[in-house]
Each structure stands twice: as structure tokens, then as C-alpha cells.
């Protein structure tokens, strides 16, 4: 590389006229976009490992305290959990549509899809608030007030009629019948100790996930404003796409959290 460095015109490669969003140290929009995509993915890789640490802790305690995890998981509302999963997947669809609209120069559609995504995100967070409030009420928040009473109602936040109306009615009824008759291998004291680990992980995992969603909505507010101002076109929509990647990632985390937290052992 060293010496016979021939100097060429730095702007020789960029034939086309410069896009206003091209930063000075990039040669082309393609280079700039590719850098952003790779950079975002590298960031998402750090996020994978970030949640990975939690999954590792979860895995260890699930091996140790499987019965407690199963028991505690049954106290979560499958209705709210399932609803939130659907809401979040829906928001992923609207997000993908927002990116697509930006790609195809549809300014109003972009803004609308982004707003819809934010609304769905807010719905998710609202449901989370309901679930958290329920946990507070039942003293299921780990700490000095943590109280695990065994044989309590399986899903305090979700009326069983709603469950019955849902798409999984037969299975749910079977489970409800089995509830209460189950012979526990753990006594109250042990459950008190080990379910607390479950709820510590539950709150850390869902809390961090919710935090990511709040950050995501914050980012999207900025992006929506930019879209409204017409900053994007089919040549430059990178911010929308980056926000989309982030949002989809948050969705993927939930795709794993849902079975790990809500479906530990439902079939008893």
C-alpha cells in the first residue's frame, strides 16, 4: 500500500449529482446506506448478547427451579401475554409497511404507518402496565414485600370468559380443569424463595424489553417528524429503515420472552 500511492480525484467515482443527505466522508449514497445497515446490525448483535446474558441466567435457574418456574409462569395471564404478542407482531407489520412506503416515496403513508406503529407500541406498554399492576397487587414483585401464595387463581388479570372466547379455547379449558388439582412438588416456603427468582427475571427481562420499546417510540417520534418534513425519498430513507430494524429486533426479543415466561408448563 505504501508508496506508489497514485492520487486520484476523490470524487471521481460518484458520477451522479450529490444527494443532499450524502455526508462528506462517503463517496456514494450506496456506501453510506450500506455502512448504516451494517452498523445497525452490529449494534443489534450487541443487543443479542445483552439479552443473551439474561437468557443465560434464566436458563440456569430454569434448570434448577423448574417447578417454581412452571408454577409462577402459570400465574401470568395468557390472555394479556398472547394479546401483546399479537399486538407486537402487528406493529412489526406496520413498521415494515412504513419502511416500504418510504422506499416508494409515499410520504403520507410513511407517516401514517409510523403513527400506527407507535400506537400499537403504546397499546403493548399499556397492557404491560395492567400486568405489572396486577403483580403489585398480588405482591409478586420481588423484594421485601414479595409474597407467593400457592394455589391462587391462575390468571388474575384475565377473566376466563375472555380466554374462552379466544382462539385456544379447548386447550385452555383443559388446563383450567387441571389447575388446582395439581400436586405440587414444592411447599410454600420453597416456592416463596424460588418463585421470587422467577419474578426477578420476569421483571428484569420484561422491564428491559419495555424500556427498549419506550426508546423505540422515542426514536420513531423523531423519524415521523422527519418524514412529515419530507426528509426522505427513495434515495434516502436510511433513518426509517434503521428505526425499523430496531423495532423488529424488539419484536424478536418478545417472540422469545413470550414462551419463556408465559408458557413454561401450561399443560397440567
Amino acid at each position: 500500500m505504501s508508496n506508489a500511492v497514485v492520487h486520484a480525484d476523490g470524487h471521481g467515482h460518484a458520477h451522479a449529482t450529490h444527494h443532499s443527505a450524502l455526508q462528506h466522508h462517503f463517496d456514494t449514497m450506496a456506501q453510506q446506506k450500506e455502512a448504516a445497515v451494517v452498523g445497525m446490525w452490529v449494534f443489534l448483535v450487541t443487543e443479542i448478547l445483552f439479552f443473551g446474558g439474561l437468557f443465560a441466567a434464566y436458563m440456569v435457574y430454569r434448570i434448577w427451579y423448574f417447578d417454581a418456574f412452571a408454577e409462577a409462569s402459570r400465574s401470568l395471564s395468557l390472555f394479556w401475554g398472547g394479546l401483546n404478542t399479537a399486538v407486537l407482531i402487528g406493529s412489526s407489520l406496520t413498521m415494515a409497511m412504513a419502511v416500504r412506503s418510504a422506499q416508494t416515496n409515499k410520504r403520507t403513508a410513511t407517516v401514517n404507518w409510523l403513527v400506527l406503529t407507535m400506537i400499537l407500541g403504546a397499546v403493548f406498554l399499556g397492557v404491560k402496565v395492567i400486568e405489572y399492576a396486577d403483580k403489585f397487587e398480588h405482591h409478586h414483585v420481588p423484594g421485601y414485600n414479595f409474597q407467593w401464595a400457592s394455589h391462587e387463581a391462575p390468571a388474575a388479570g384475565a377473566p376466563s370468559t375472555l380466554l374462552g372466547a379466544g382462539e385456544h379455547a379447548p386447550a385452555t379449558e383443559g388446563a383450567a380443569a387441571a389447575e388446582g388439582h395439581r400436586e405440587l412438588s414444592l411447599n410454600a416456603d420453597q416456592l416463596q424463595l424460588t418463585t421470587q427468582i422467577y419474578f426477578s427475571l420476569y421483571f428484569t427481562m420484561t422491564g428491559l424489553h419495555a424500556l427498549h420499546m419506550i426508546v423505540g417510540i422515542g426514536i420513531m417520534l423523531v423519524i415521523t417528524w422527519m418524514a412529515w418534513k419530507g426528509k426522505f425519498d427513495d434515495q434516502y430513507y436510511t433513518p426509517v429503515e434503521m428505526a425499523g430494524l430496531y423495532w423488529h429486533f424488539v419484536d424478536i426479543v418478545w417472540i422469545f420472552l413470550f414462551p419463556l415466561l408465559y408458557l413454561v408448563e401450561r399443560h397440567v
Binding site: L78, G82, T85, A86, I89, G90, S92, L93, A96, M97, R100, E167, H168, A171, T172, G174, A175, F258, P259, L263, E265, R266, H267, V268
Partner: peptide, 23 residues
């Protein structure tokens, strides 16, 4: 996109359904 969305919803249903079968 719609197809993927539908597939995701069906799979969500499937995972809940599978959780209630003792495997």
C-alpha cells in the same frame, strides 16, 4: 408482508396450543 404477518400469528397460536399438550 401480509403473508409473513399471518404466518407469525398462526405460529403464535401454534406455540400456545403446543404448550397445552403434554409433550
Amino acid at each position: 408482508y401480509i403473508t409473513i404477518f399471518m404466518a407469525l400469528m398462526v405460529l403464535t397460536g401454534l406455540t400456545v396450543f403446543a404448550a397445552f399438550i403434554d409433550l
